[in-house]
Design a binder for these strands. Structure first.
Lengths: 228, 228
DNA sequence: CGTCATTTTGAAGACTGTCAACGCGCGTGG
DNA sequence: CCACGCGCGTTGACAGTCTTCAAAATGACG
């Protein structure tokens, strides 16, 4: 959780000393850059598990991660994908309520959660940044609830592709760093429905499918009317 | 909105001064108690709307509110119900991304958002409390995503009833402060499915339905196996 | 007691899930 | 170099759950 933070411009000297706190810089990312330990996770490997002590927080450097929760019978819901620059691993208690795994080979920066919280104790702006981050994530998650509760397969797929295109900030080509199963678990669908929906969008010339992991958003009109 | 506000005089000594923070009191709720303006909303009345400036924050005193979002074609998703003591209205930007309405006649305390944020600027513990609050809400919302994405109607209904029973902290009797339509929009179902599911649970002796707004949780075993 | 909103129930249909088979790409090993 | 196996993705047929449309029942309130 807690990903997709607002992209602030980074001040090299992060203002975590109580004395000088006039600039609204992103202290969190600065702290990660300066103090984060680099770690590599191969795809499908677990970064942390449900109910494990929430000892560390993370920032994606490359690759992608999924934040998910499992039901006892194997049903899974992915609440968010972490892409490069996203921060995740903040939970409210002392235990993770979700698990995190790499969906493809990924490099992340790791920090002790207590370090961040110690900084936040002394730096009001960092504390506020953490709050804004959580609030932003909350809003994003609530939007996703609307998707899961009230839209059909095509609308979910289109929203997902749009979101990925925006986050990739590559105009129309999306390289998916996750499997169909991951997409299905994110959208509350089955892998078959995901596949069929993509095929249908391709037949409608709304998208192109050069390969299974690459999607080209073709007709914005077709996508728009598909959303309706 | 925000008329007829009876302003309370601010008590000079509420414990948000950094000096005395040994008690695990809720600074936020203290601030609401001391400085909140009491307002009454009749059922179905809007407290704030989507895209309105997020100028105020609220705490429920009595009654209930729904936090919801509308799609252009009328589909609605309720992301949360606010029950007495719940705080709502914090959004990440300057505009509300959701709307809030009273589901039954409700009394709320209102405060300027800027007031809270000004306090948080100076009180690190309040800032942390706001962060914890947002993070807690985030976790709750993510759990709800699992419900919306991966469970059937009966499981959603049972989870909802359990949650309401817990929040009412009345052992087994739940008085619902919302309509079937509100429940449906919260659970991502139709009003008919909600009604049918409740009837089925009653037939299975898992619940009793003395009236449409009152539900008795009877057989914990029946509810449990219903969850499976 | 009548009216209106809300809730419940019924029947039919749509969308997605389930089960199954097939195709494709890729790495390994013969 | 090519065949094989394996993971992953696609497609098809059918079933099931939930929605839709419709109407009856219930309850609140003047």
């Amino acid at each position: 959780m807690l990903m997709q933070m607002a992209r602030h411009s980074a001040d090299p000297r992060f203002s975590s000393a109580p004395g000088r706190a006039d600039k609204p810089v992103s202290g969190l990312k600065e702290i990660f850059r300066l103090m984060g330990a680099r770690m590599k996770f191969e795809r499908h490997n677990e970064i942390y598990g449900e109910n494990e002590p929430a000892e560390y927080v993370y920032q994606v450097v490359s690759g992608a991660v999924r934040i998910s929760k499992l039901l006892s019978d194997g049903r899974r819901q992915i609440s968010a994908f972490g892409l490069p620059a996203d921060v995740f691993g903040f939970d409210c208690g002392n235990e993770h309520r979700f698990s995190a795994e790499a969906t493809v080979d990924a490099v992340v920066l790791v920090m002790k959660r207590s370090t961040i919280e110690a900084f936040a104790e002394r730096d009001i702006h960092l504390a506020q940044e953490l709050w804004k981050l959580a609030t932003y994530e909350l809003g994003r998650t609530q939007e996703h609830m609307l998707l899961l509760g009230r839209t059909n397969a095509r609308e979910r797929m289109v929203a997902f592709l749009r979101g990925m295109a925006r986050r990739n900030h590559s105009a129309n080509v999306v390289d998916l760093p996750m499997s169909r199963q991951d997409i299905a678990d994110y959208l509350g669908l089955t892998i078959e429905t995901v596949s069929r929906t993509l095929s249908a969008l391709a037949r409608a010339a709304a998208i192109g499918l050069p390969s299974s992991r690459r999607i080209v958003l073709r007709s914005h009109e077709a996508l728009l009317e598909a959303t309706t």
